[in-house]
């Protein structure tokens, strides 16, 4: 049995539910046994190579799926929601190498799997699971890009990342942004960058009480704007 709260996670309330931000960057909804991850960007290295860009180390898809597998093994979710930009583009979803599709299929077996479409992967992937533009579940609404007036919303897209000095150390870590209306997830994919938490678009979306929950070695909450 896992501990109720360890350094691996930080629980927070949203729309009457209790959600848990995991140090891995995944979101866990214990009551529904639901795991949400965002912005996997599978097939990114391959897409860049296809477009005559650089030939990046071709291990990103493997790395991302290994991290996802570890979360699924630790939590045994009934439902997994991928919050969009799961594939770096629609071709990447189609051309995913066989070992990767095999691993994905194994992860999907025996549970409900939902692909929310994102700006990178508008078409539903041909891999099984359910493809949706967005999903309402109890008081929560799952979509790729946050909408300003939403309540109880869980989204991704922005790859928030906090960069600041903390305890005399320079810290730069992907983070969740949460307030009483919404949660924005960090990118779960290996080859992903981040948008600074002080970017105007994030500043406009998040309320005065917003927290940033850093991912990485441990889930660590601090005020978003302190």
């Amino acid at each position: 049995m896992r501990l109720k709260q360890s350094m691996n996670e930080h629980p927070f309330p949203l729309a009457g539910t209790v959600l848990t931000a995991r140090a891995s960057g995944a979101l866990w909804w214990e009551a529904e046994r639901l795991l949400a991850v965002s912005d996997l960007h599978l097939g990114k290295a391959d897409r860049l190579a296809r477009r005559a860009g650089a030939l990046l180390p071709p291990y990103d898809t493997h790395e991302t799926l290994t991290r996802l597998a570890a979360e699924i093994e630790a939590l045994a979710p009934r439902t997994v929601i991928c919050l969009g930009d799961s594939f770096d583009d629609d071709d990447a979803a189609r051309d995913l190498p066989e070992p990767a599709t095999d691993r994905l299929t194994a992860l999907m077996a025996g549970r409900r799997w939902i692909w929310i479409s994102g700006n990178h992967d508008p078409a539903p992937p041909d891999l099984g699971g359910t493809a949706l533009a967005e999903l309402a579940l109890g008081p929560l609404r799952f979509r790729h890009i946050a909408e300003r007036e939403a309540e109880g919303e869980v989204s991704g897209h922005y790859h928030p990342k906090m960069r600041r000095r903390l305890g005399g150390q320079s810290v730069a870590r992907p983070c969740f942004l949460v307030d009483c209306r919404r949660a924005i997830l960090p990118a779960f994919g290996a080859y992903t960058g981040g948008l600074a938490t002080h970017a105007p678009v994030l500043d406009a979306l998040m309320g005065a009480d917003a927290l940033a929950i850093l991912t990485g070695p441990k889930a660590l909450a601090l005020p978003m704007r302190a």
Binding site: L56, P57, G194, L195
Partner: peptide, 23 residues
């Protein structure tokens, strides 16, 4: 245009160290 598209070279370094240390 924002930093989501670009990511730190440290990520590539860590990935290579893990999967391809003789690169």
């Amino acid at each position: 245009t924002g930093r989501q598209a670009t990511f730190s070279s440290d990520i590539l370094y860590d990935t290579l160290m893990r999967y391809d240390p003789d690169h």
